[in-house]
Design a protein around this nucleic acid. Structure first.
Lengths: 152, 152
DNA sequence: ATCGCTGCAAAAATTTTGCAGGTAA
DNA sequence: TTACCTGCAAAATTTTTGCAGCGAT
């Protein structure tokens, strides 16, 4: 159903060769199904649910169970990151190889469109939170929700 | 199995009478099961999963389906708030009647203990995020994760 | 008496697992 | 070859729903 869109040359997300390299490094096999999953994630700025990945793979037949297994493997390898915006299932996003930069999301509560945000919670405040509660290794999750221009 | 703990007189969370009042106002019935669910939530500082609520209700028999239905109703009425810390299922917390104060959580990644946090993402930064992306009615979700003193 | 609520059981939806055959390295 | 993977089907979870009877108001 869905034809794959051309990828702009200026594409900043990890290229497939680099991804396969990451798999090989851990002696995991580079299979057609995994490449397909990676490719789907790579071509979308927005985190996708398992079902969305499955839908986009329609044609290149790949079992749902395989997608679950692939995503879990990729997540465990740190190549994919999991999000939950409270709008249904978990969503997954490819972690760029050279841009592991911590970022956040601004999500439209109407259409689930996602914008990547680089504003971040001030480090000193985070430290204060950690110290005040004697927690170690504190990180945070920050997401913004609102209505996007198209849905207003 | 679990006996209910005594509630300190200084308890700041909404008292049951106030809660029943909220139900009546909307012409929803005040049933034993709903009171039991509210009571469980009220007695715990930490957001609980459906299964945890069910486990604590053991004895006062209440069907799992009823808990799902109660929680959904209470959530829809704004008496209960849903969270997802990525540590399994969704968690639910009672929204105090007179303290709707927006707050966040600091969650232990080992034992899931939760501390309520009042540090908040700076409003001006949030506005900047909204403006920069032309989103309206922007809110945020902010959670901290780390290792609590007991688990270190 | 009315309308909503509950338990039970069945259905639906989501995720995981076993296994035999297939494939990358 | 030797691991590792995959599809398929079954199982395990989690959540929702239909329905007849019960209960709050």
């Amino acid at each position: 159903m869905k034809t794959t869109q051309p990828l702009p040359a200026t594409e900043t997300r990890a290229a497939l060769p680099a991804l396969t390299e990451r798999l090989r490094r851990r002696s995991r096999k580079v299979t057609g199904q995994r490449l397909a999953v990676l490719d789907v994630l790579r071509r979308h700025a927005q985190p996708l649910t398992i079902k969305e990945v499955f839908a986009r793979l329609d044609g290149r037949n790949c079992d749902l169970a395989t997608i679950y297994r692939s995503i879990h493997l990729l997540e465990e390898m740190g190549m994919v990151r999991r999000f939950n915006f409270g709008d249904g299932g978990d969503r997954f996003e490819l972690v760029p190889e050279n841009d592991q930069r911590h970022h956040h999301h601004l999500v439209c509560i109407e259409c689930s469109a996602v914008v990547r945000i680089h504003e971040c919670f001030p480090a000193e405040l985070e430290e204060r939170v950690a110290r005040a509660n004697r927690f170690k290794a504190v990180t945070h999750r920050l997401d913004f929700f609102g209505v996007c221009p198209r849905c207003q």
